[in-house]
């Protein structure tokens, strides 16, 4: 039994330690907001926070998390997250929406570290998150707009 703190709750996962967090979240805990896109840290659809830092859950083994605190799209909260989610909706960023949990987790992590990211910061923080619908123009606008609102 592996114990992990997920969204502030201590969860028991009956699985082998090498099971990727992605599948523990989705198939064991039924937290399906975190998505599968590639399984090899190429697309970012599975992005969650580990102690506030964005990590790809598809390559994060549950046995390696230890006392780290995991936050998923279902549990992400606070001023930055709420602002990002609100702006994302207002600008109608999502098309199919499948990548957007990961995009939002990456964007929240970026804005939590960097209150006023420039375009190059956005490129660096977000280029691990594929959007096959190519909603990138709106993702960029939404991050800038969220930064403006958070500053105000």
């Amino acid at each position: 039994m592996i114990k992990i703190n997920i969204n502030g709750v201590q969860r028991d996962i009956d699985a082998e330690p090498e099971m990727p967090l992605l599948w523990a979240l989705r198939d064991v805990l039924h937290l399906s907001g975190t998505k599968f896109g590639c399984g090899m840290a190429q697309c970012g659809a599975c992005t969650v926070h580990l102690d506030g830092q964005p990590v790809r859950s598809c390559v994060t083994a549950i046995g390696d998390i230890g006392a780290g605190k995991i936050t998923t799209i279902e549990g992400v909260s606070g001023n930055v997250a709420e602002t990002v989610q609100a702006v994302w909706t207002e600008l109608d960023v999502p098309q199919c929406g499948y990548c957007q949990s990961g995009q939002i987790m990456s964007a929240v992590a970026l804005l939590s570290e960097n209150q006023k990211p420039g375009d190059a910061d956005i490129d660096a923080a977000m280029s691990g998150n594929l959007c096959r619908c190519a909603t990138y123009a709106r993702i960029r606008s939404a991050i800038h707009e969220a930064a403006r609102r958070l500053e105000a």
């Binding site: 907001g33 998923t72 279902e74 989610q85 909706t89 960023v93 929406g97 957007q100 949990s101 939002i104």
Partner: peptide, 9 residues
């Protein structure tokens, strides 16, 4: 339908 695409639901 944007909102449920921003919270994983």
């Amino acid at each position: 339908d944007s909102k449920p695409k921003t919270n994983g639901s």
